[in-house]
Design a protein around this nucleic acid. Structure first.
Lengths: 356, 356
DNA sequence: TTGAAAGCGCTAACAC
DNA sequence: GTGTTAGCGCTTTCAA
């Protein structure tokens, strides 16, 4: 059963292949009667136009791409019970990219594009990135997922927009989120509105530009308020997961045993903050009465947990939408100057800091 | 800047185009020295292999697809503040497909495939579905997203697996979830273990096969227990959203005013149940003391809300993984008999029914 | 409105 | 290990 082609459809409907092609590309340019004949023939043959052939001939794909980090080991066992656990924590972890995917998918669809997604995977010339690059009209890359070197090469052939994280390649379009501003606002709120003075910050790995920017915002707020300015987070987590949040919260309290413990812990993201909430509840430390806790991201869970989490809301979905916008623009005008957007964030005051 | 091709790379590195091709397809079949020359040339030219050309020549794409329903109007305004609201409710709504996407993406990656996703969109010959179909080696379709007629045609040219929902086309691979069994177990639990006898069921639209199957499970449990068997849900929601859950919960209580109200309300999904929790709290009706509430799906929020929600956990991510498995199998053996899987679900007992 | 012919950039046999 | 040569199935001029 080798797939029918334009030739088969043309023959069966008594027209030329050019006409068959027109029917799919621009139906109105074909007489209605002819068109119906072609469509009938196509249906009865089970004809599906080859995207590859179309793409090759027209030099476009109608597809946009997204490369995001590989959060979880794809080879991990997915045992029956193991899954329940895994899904629970990890669903929070991945919400971030889920939202971006969703935003991109929608915006892409609005422009008539489909979305090709692939988590990054190191590899030779045949890496997934290369595959994606060859199959799309342009794509977005989350920070730290593709070697800069590869992006350099690929970006010479098609539009790439870099998402979240510092601008690594300055001739590329780029979108980031006001991490530093957001954390500064948040810390200011804690200091000014709640009068807290002993703050602690739990960061992420040193390579996480987001976590670093948030820490800088925290530093600025401390400096402004005349509080001691740490030059390193009080603690760093490798994974920024709930589990790590629990661990770091425990560590922080243990460390403070006997001395005055912090009045607030600012976590570099929501997942950790939520993990910390569990740890604190377990230890009988009341939030926000005994200690305030804040996160960053504004994932849906943050408003559901008890106490609800004060956080900084990132417009993740909008990130995806803007990414598509930039790609579409650049596709239309490849010569325009590189654009760099900084998306605003907003502090969401809830119970865990003593508001709401 | 017309993109460089194998010819350019071949010329620049002094080899034939076949060798260039080999370097990307099967690096080990080329002498290391030659390979490096080719790779260098490619890098300096900014060469990216054309997925279209490769696909056309090799008759494969290395991409799997997923078509899912269009939950939200892509043309909807995404105003600054509007988004916060939208994201809140809708993040719950879409978790379902998010999980499937995630499961598919992972499994696909494990097999060296990328994933092309597109929400369904009605349209002429140029519908998104057609686009997807032409660009993948096989794809999965969520129930009710693509006209059966289209699937008939397309399935003659490439593997399709249908997800969730009854098997509409019997020569296709198909995966469903044990909706009926799950709801029956859940209702049994309420009846037997908690001794409840006045139950109410809130369903979804008549066209939702999942909601219907769940209702059937509910009916069976009633029948078994000698309780009155309704032949229609007590109430139906059009959207199965939190908002509808609130509305239906209110309606149910209003309707029962003066008479005995139900001892338990079983909702056809978690979102509605969670909405109902809000409504009940607002009205001062205690859950589970005054009334038990249950959902279906096992979305992450279900264990976070207070009281935590008793529900039936669907293995959504596994659905995605199994879908990839079926596609891979069928790709390897197109002649094998159609497979139909029924994924088991499990009742998760939590606070909202009086457990945990 | 429709047809004829020339590629699009690659892979796959098959030679060497 | 490497080169030659046909296509893969479509879109795109250019004519008619």
């Amino acid at each position: 059963m080798s797939a029918p082609t334009v030739y088969d459809v043309a023959e069966r409907s008594g027209v030329s292949i050019a006409t068959v092609s027109r029917v799919y590309r621009n139906p109105d340019s074909v007489r209605a009667e002819t068109r119906d004949r072609v469509l009938d023939a196509a249906r009865s043959l089970g004809y599906v136009p080859s995207g590859n052939a179309r793409g090759l001939a027209s030099r476009t794909t109608g597809v946009l791409g997204l490369c995001f980090p590989d959060y979880a080991d794809p080879d991990a066992e997915t045992g029956a019970e193991a899954e329940a656990e895994a899904e629970a924590d990890d669903s929070a972890v991945m919400l971030y990219s889920d939202q971006i995917i969703r935003g991109m998918e929608r915006a892409a669809r609005r422009h008539g594009y489909a979305l090709l997604i692939a988590a990054s995977l190191v590899g030779g010339p045949e890496s997934l990135v290369a595959k994606v690059a060859g199959r799309v009209d342009g794509f977005a890359v989350l920070a730290k997922t593709v070697p800069t070197e590869d992006l350099e090469v690929i970006s010479r052939r098609l539009p790439i927009v870099m998402l979240a994280g510092p601008r690594e390649i300055d001739h590329l379009d780029h979108i980031e989120v006001a991490n530093s501003d957001g954390e500064r606002e948040l810390a200011r709120h804690l200091i000014r509105d709640h009068g807290l003075r002993r703050l602690a910050f739990v960061g992420g790995e040193r390579e996480s530009p987001d976590a670093q920017a948030r820490f800088r915002g925290y530093q600025e707020a401390c400096r402004e308020a005349g509080l001691p300015v740490a030059d390193e987070p009080d603690l760093r987590a490798e994974m920024m997961t709930q589990a790590e949040g629990e661990r770091t919260a425990d560590a922080l309290l243990d460390r403070a045993a006997g001395r005055e413990r912090p009045e607030a812990i600012l976590f570099a993201n929501d997942q950790m903050a939520i993990g910390a909430l569990h740890a604190l509840e377990r230890r009988g430390v009341r939030v926000p009465d005994d200690i305030a806790v804040t996160g960053f991201d504004g994932i849906p869970l943050s408003r559901i947990v008890r106490p609800s989490l004060t956080t900084v809301r990132q417009p993740m979905r909008r990130l995806g939408e803007e990414a598509v916008g930039l790609l579409i623009h650049r596709l239309a005008d490849p010569t325009r100057a590189p654009v760099s957007l900084m998306l605003p964030v907003s502090v969401t005051r809830r119970s865990s800091c003593g508001c709401g």
